[in-house]
């Protein structure tokens, strides 16, 4: 009789309480989400330059500032093919990019760059391979830019009179 009771109790603990507690612990850790690294893309990024910074993602595109032997270049990678996209006329030897952002279809790139003692806000169009200087008005020094998915709206962090302000600029 006593043996049966112990047997029953053991079964209860083994088949019910232990699995129940395990599930409970699993559920309670739901606050942390588990991101999966894209290993092949990440390792190709590591191999392609000394370093990368200022990432900005669009649907199928990643834009970064990639350091090649001390010189930072704007680079766009097609996330599907994992290949770099050519950007003729964008990276110049006499400029230093500071902030970049890319439109949803990857056609337009907004950038803040240093050229000599000037800090400029520009939009590059991949289809025409042209760069358009965007005037900051009232005058200010741009620092960071964000472009919306359509590539027609910019939010720009601008230094003005010792304060940081944000300008919204619509471009045709």
């Amino acid at each position: 009789m006593r043996k049966d009771f112990l047997n029953q109790a053991f079964k209860k603990i083994f088949f019910f309480y232990i699995p129940f507690l395990t599930c409970l612990i699993g559920i309670s850790s739901c606050g942390n989400s588990f991101q999966k690294p894209l290993r092949s893309l990440n390792s190709s990024l590591i191999q392609s330059a000394n370093s990368h910074r200022e990432p900005s993602l669009a649907s199928e595109w990643l834009i970064t500032l990639a350091n090649h032997q001390g010189k930072e270049l704007i680079e766009v990678i097609n996330l599907r093919s994992k290949k770099k996209v050519a950007l003729p006329g964008l990276n110049r030897a006499d400029t230093q990019p500071i902030s970049v952002s890319i439109s949803g279809n990857g056609e337009r790139i907004a950038l803040v760059r240093q050229r000599g003692n000037k800090t400029e806000l520009l939009v590059y169009r991949r289809n025409t391979e042209t760069v358009q200087l965007i005037e900051i008005n009232p005058t200010g020094i741009p620092r960071k830019v964000s472009m919306d998915g359509t590539g027609k709206l910019l939010a720009v962090q601008v230094s003005r009179g010792g304060n940081w302000e944000i300008d919204l600029i619509r471009i045709p």
Binding site: Q35, K36, P37, L38, L45, R53, E54
Partner: peptide, 18 residues
Amino acid sequence: RLAVQIVKNGKWQVQIFD
């Protein structure tokens, strides 16, 4: 996807997560 900039071995690195 989430792109994350970290420092590894004294260098900026960008990693992409699904």
